[in-house]
């Protein structure tokens, strides 16, 4: 049994289903990306795993327990999110001391060195930080607690590109040093591509797909060419006109032999970035913006 499992989970707010009949198990000791458009249910899913909210129906299991108000889950799972609260009269140094007391694997040196690297003074009060710095502080704490499971909800919100890159690098090095189960929700799949082992794509509260990043990259291919009956209409995920003669298609990977044949028929073949593929897959559920006009 995996550390985190969900079975037929539904979460309803008033009349709105945020998560619908979701069944999945998170791979242990790996970095998993949680991807999907706004309102897909990413934060709700993380809240359920962290035990901040209760599922309306179904079972959420973390280390074999229902996470809601469970002490062992609280000690072994850390959740980094935008609304993290620290005691108002604490300086960052005191916040770190408090974490050190609660979390046995807390890496004080890492917390201090990362703070220094990101120009966050330990003398500052967390509430005085800018939005980007506050995200950075939360992210540092998420890396330093080194709990067996760490959840990050949009950890890079407000961070500069340079800070985001350094955070991804720090996360990777921290994971290499201490392999553990990490889930990251993000809008920026293109920046996370190399970091993730698994991808979960949510849409409308449902699981659109869950697969290894390497497989996701091979899931589809882009074709440029003239209209041709060689393309199996069933496998088209996206299409767009390039000019009068040429068209761009994204199709499910048809196998190497078929690709070779398409190439010989003059098609130009290109890889499809996972970030784009996720947009195409979720767009198929609602049509592109042109349909509005």
């Amino acid at each position: 049994m995996a550390e985190i499992e969900l079975s037929d989970v539904m979460k309803r707010y008033r009349n709105q289903e945020a998560i619908s009949s979701l069944t999945l198990s998170i791979p242990d000791q790996s970095i998993t990306g949680l991807i999907g458009p706004n309102g897909a249910g990413k934060t709700t899913l993380l809240n359920l795993m962290a035990g901040i909210e209760a599922a309306t129906e179904g079972d959420v299991s973390v280390f074999g327990n229902e996470p809601l108000e469970n002490l062992s889950v609280a000690a072994n799972l850390f959740y980094v999110h935008e609304d993290m609260m620290y005691p108002q009269d604490f300086r960052i140094s005191e916040v770190y001391q408090a974490f050190k007391k609660v979390y046995p694997n807390w890496d004080q040196a890492l917390a201090e060195n990362l703070s220094d690297h990101f120009n966050i003074s330990l003398k500052q009060m967390p509430m005085d930080l800018s939005k980007g710095q506050a995200s950075t502080l939360n992210a540092i704490i998420g890396l330093a607690v080194q709990t067996p499971v760490t959840l990050f909800d949009e950890p890079t919100t407000g961070m500069d590109y340079g800070v985001r890159k350094d955070f991804y690098r720090a996360l990777l090095k921290s994971y290499i040093a201490h392999p553990r189960t990490i889930i990251l929700s993000s809008h920026l799949l293109n920046e996370l591509e190399d970091l993730l082992e698994h991808v979960i794509l949510l849409d409308h509260g449902e699981l659109e797909l869950m697969m290894e990043m390497d497989k996701l990259k091979q899931y589809a291919v882009g074709l440029v060419g003239e209209y041709d009956s060689m393309i199996d209409q069933q496998t088209i995920l996206y299409q767009d006109r390039m000019d009068l003669n040429q068209q761009y298609w994204v199709i499910k990977h048809p196998g190497e032999d078929m690709l070779q044949e398409l190439r010989q028929h003059g098609f130009t073949i290109s890889p499809v970035a996972p970030a784009d593929l996720c947009v195409y897959l979720t767009q198929m559920n609602r049509g592109d913006v042109d349909h509005v006009f």
Partner: peptide
């Protein structure tokens, strides 16, 4: 695999 992961900034599984 860990040296390669660090060198190329990629997931160790890859």
């Amino acid at each position: 695999q860990y040296q390669l992961a660090e060198l190329f900034n990629i997931n160790p599984a890859t």
